[in-house]
């Protein structure tokens, strides 16, 4: 059981010590990782994913429950502790969704694989705009469908206590629902994002700069209030998007109806 993970700061791109020397993340917390392109966001996620022990270019060390990850002697146990969904991932296996989910569940020696596969599919369909069928081939799923299925699968079958999400916003899925679904299960969620809504939905955000952890903010009550406004504007943008996607024209009248 993981109660917390800690990132012990290493070096930034110039070899200077990171401004944040220690970052503790507790179970049930959502931590956003923000920063400009090339600031080191994905590297931070990669360090956590491989349980860095000073051997990566950043020289960071990751602790699990205050213990160095290296002390978890069995590498196979350690590996199951983090699961990732990133913008670059694709399904490459030539299989139906159902068969694949079964295969994944069996590979983790989970019981009632078929039932679990069905749950994943249901959850994925809540996240995805377009319905996913159990007989659909993995490789023909759209970007949005794939990402929805990956999130659902990571949450229910991989069931890792640490979930790493890299730029989910491009995925075309209901990302807020995805995030809330994951966080509810008492997991540690670390998400790299450029999306202000996701950043503010997180409990805290670490700001990356020049390869190092630069600042750490807790989301303020005022920011949480502003988030509501942002969500309102977002609904408006979504409405416009849907209008255009469905082939309608946009005019003053349509906007009033909304």
């Amino acid at each position: 059981m993981i109660d917390s993970i800690s990132v012990i700061g290493g070096k930034d791109k110039d070899g200077a010590a990171e401004a944040i020397p220690l970052l503790d993340i507790r179970a049930g917390e959502i931590l956003a990782v923000v920063g400009t392109t090339g600031s080191g966001k994905s590297m931070l996620i990669a360090d956590i994913e491989q349980w860095a022990d000073g051997e990566t270019p950043s020289q960071r060390r990751i602790l699990i429950n205050q213990m160095p990850a290296g002390e978890f002697a069995d590498d196979r146990v350690l590996r199951g502790m983090a699961a990732e969904v990133s913008q670059n991932m694709n399904f490459v296996m030539d299989m139906s969704v159902k068969d694949f989910l079964n295969l994944h569940a069996c590979s983790r020696h989970l019981e009632q694989a078929e039932m679990l596969a069905e749950q994943v599919l249901n959850y994925a369909n809540r996240l995805s705009g377009e319905p996913i069928g159990s007989q659909d081939k993995l490789t023909v799923l759209s970007g949005g469908q794939s990402r929805a299925l990956m999130v659902a699968d990571v949450a229910l079958i991989s069931d890792a206590p640490v979930v790493l999400l890299d730029e989910l916003e491009n995925a075309g899925i209901d990302r807020l629902a995805a995030l809330k679904g994951l966080a509810l299960q008492n997991k540690i969620v670390v998400l790299v994002t450029h999306d202000p809504m996701l950043a503010l939905l997180a409990d805290r955000r670490v700001v990356m700069k020049n390869g190092g952890m630069f600042k750490l903010h807790s989301t303020t009550p005022e920011e949480k209030l502003l988030l509501k406004k942002l969500e309102q504007s977002n609904r408006q943008i979504s409405f416009w998007r849907e209008q255009l996607r469905l082939g309608f024209t946009v005019n003053e009248e349509a906007l009033k109806q909304y």
Binding site: V85, M89, S146, M150, D153, S158
Partner: peptide, 24 residues
């Protein structure tokens, strides 16, 4: 591993470990 899903990574790795249980 960076371009395939977490699930495929896990399944693939498990197959590798089945083929060679002793390797790192």
């Amino acid at each position: 591993g960076d371009v395939v899903s977490q699930a495929e990574r896990e399944v693939f790795r498990q197959r590798v470990e089945m083929a060679n249980p002793d390797a790192a």
